[in-house]
């Protein structure tokens, strides 16, 4: 690629991408655990899995909040168009996130069966719906949505449920399930651990089927997405890395190195997000049928001065955040043990 001149807009495109990738990589396993939650049978297993994400899910969700904030600050027109345009979908996402969050906190506070079942369903449905909606939203942004000359969304809610975005949504669910199962396997032991490994293998198959279908659909029906890779064949290596990371997961499991399997899964998510970013750049929201109205990193951005100020803020804040996040994961390393402070 010879078009690399890193202006502030490009840097912010990358930074927002990093925040959303962080979200997918971290909250991805929380959502995946949630999607698998109802498959576990007894209360002890459910509690073990909840406590595997207990100390970290909240911090993981902050990546989404900060990603949203960064989008608001760096590309306010994208934030405004997408959030108001996808109104009902966004409200549904909020409802799903609310139920998921409070269900984790409330579930184990009471011993009654009906109480726990109610929050179990809330947690699982909330997690599944959030993963699906996030995927559908990404799918729409990639496929293209109708944007009018003022930069406003000109479609409908049902118009967002086209086959391609829904396929992206299902792929996201599969990806998070795989990621969650692997994280769960890393944090548990005994029978539950073996069960999660089986689930991880099954969700890998589910994910690979989705991913292959999605790749074919992209190549066949979404030519604007594959244009950059066609022009720069070396970018295909990102897709290759993705496949290698996925293939590495069963290998690491086989050797009993669960944490390496988890790292592989993280690498798979990072490469997927990188591929997505490379495909859409420099558009943030692709406009269909009028590509001229697309929201790009230039026509939708804040002023260079603001982007500069924000870069200083991110430069101070993000390294500190990463440092203590790593420390906190370190403190809570190892297998989950239930104690009286547990959920």
């Amino acid at each position: 690629m010879n078009c690399c001149h890193f202006d502030l807009n490009t840097i912010w495109f990358i930074l927002v991408g990093v925040l959303f990738t962080g979200y997918a990589m971290l909250d991805g396993f929380d959502l995946g655990i949630g999607a698998l939650h109802l498959f576990t049978k007894d209360d002890a297993e459910r509690r073990t899995l909840l406590n595997a994400i207990g100390p970290v899910w909240d911090g993981n969700e902050v990546w989404l909040v900060t990603g949203g904030g960064a989008m608001f600050a760096a590309f306010p027109n994208v934030y405004a168009t997408v959030f108001s345009g996808f109104y009902l979908a966004m409200i549904l996402l909020l409802v799903a996130l609310i139920f998921r969050a409070v269900a984790i906190e409330f579930r184990s506070k009471q011993p009654m069966r009906w109480w726990r079942q109610m929050w179990d369903i809330g947690f699982s449905a909330g997690s599944l719906l959030s993963s699906l909606l996030i995927g559908v939203a990404l799918g729409n942004i990639a496929w293209g949505v109708p944007i009018d000359d003022r930069g406003e969304f000109a479609g409908t809610f049902l118009g967002l449920l086209k086959p391609y975005p829904v396929l992206v949504g299902v792929t996201t669910v599969a990806l998070f399930m795989m990621h969650g199962a692997i994280y769960g396997a890393m944090k548990t032991e005994g029978a539950l651990h073996d069960k999660l490994r089986v689930w991880a293998m099954r969700s890998i198959i589910f994910f690979v089927i989705c991913a292959v279908t999605l790749t074919m659909a992209t190549l066949l029906y979404v030519p604007h997405l594959s244009a950059r890779v066609r022009e720069n064949p070396w970018l295909f290596s990102i897709a290759l890395l993705n496949m290698l990371s996925i293939a590495n997961i069963p290998r690491e499991f086989h050797h009993g190195r669960d944490w390496r399997a988890f790292l592989s899964s993280c690498a798979a998510i990072i490469t997927l997000m990188a591929l997505f970013a490379v495909d859409i750049f420099p558009n943030l929201v692709y406009s269909l049928p009028k590509p001229g109205n697309s929201l790009t990193i230039y026509n939708a951005s804040s002023s260079p001065k603001t982007l500069g100020i924000m870069l200083v803020i991110a430069g101070i804040g993000v390294p500190v955040v990463i440092a203590y996040t790593v420390c906190i994961y370190w403190i809570f390393r190892g297998k989950v043990k239930l104690d009286r402070m547990s959920y």
Partner: peptide, 13 residues
């Protein structure tokens, strides 16, 4: 967004 969004993003970080 240019002004208000910056404060919100700083809050997140």
């Amino acid at each position: 967004g240019d002004v208000f969004g910056s404060a919100l993003a700083a809050e997140g970080i």
